[in-house]
Amino acid sequence: MVAMRTPEQTVRAYFDAVNARDYEALAALFADDAELRPVGSRARRGREDVAAYYPPLLAGFAESHDEPTRISVAGQVVTAEITFTGRTADGAPVTFDAVDVIDVDDDGRIARLSLWYDTRAVAKQVTGHQRH
Rank of each mutant, 00 (worst) to 15 (best):
M1V: 10
M1C: 04
V2T: 13
V2R: 13
T6M: 06
P7E: 09
P7R: 06
P7W: 01
T10A: 02
T10D: 05
D16A: 14
D16Q: 13
A17R: 05
V18H: 01
A20Q: 13
R21M: 09
D22Q: 02
Y23V: 03
E24Y: 01
E24G: 13
L26V: 08
F30W: 12
A31L: 07
A31N: 04
E35N: 11
E35R: 15
L36N: 02
P38G: 08
G40Q: 10
S41G: 12
R44P: 08
R45P: 00
R45D: 02
G46W: 13
E48I: 01
A51K: 01
A52C: 00
Y53V: 06
Y53M: 04
Y53F: 15
Y54D: 05
L57Y: 00
L57K: 00
A59F: 03
A62L: 12
S64H: 14
S64E: 05
S64A: 15
D66N: 15
R70C: 07
I71N: 02
I71L: 15
S72A: 14
V73R: 08
V73G: 05
G75R: 13
Q76C: 08
A80D: 04
E81C: 12
E81F: 12
E81Y: 10
I82C: 06
T83Y: 10
T83E: 14
F84S: 06
T85F: 01
T85M: 05
T88K: 03
T88C: 07
T88W: 02
A89I: 12
D90L: 10
A92E: 01
T95F: 02
A98Y: 10
V99C: 15
V101F: 06
I102T: 11
D103F: 07
V104L: 00
G108L: 03
R109D: 07
I110C: 03
R112Q: 09
R112A: 13
S114F: 03
L115Y: 10
W116A: 07
Y117S: 00
D118G: 01
T119E: 14
V122F: 08
G128E: 03
R131K: 08
R131D: 11
R131M: 12
H132S: 14
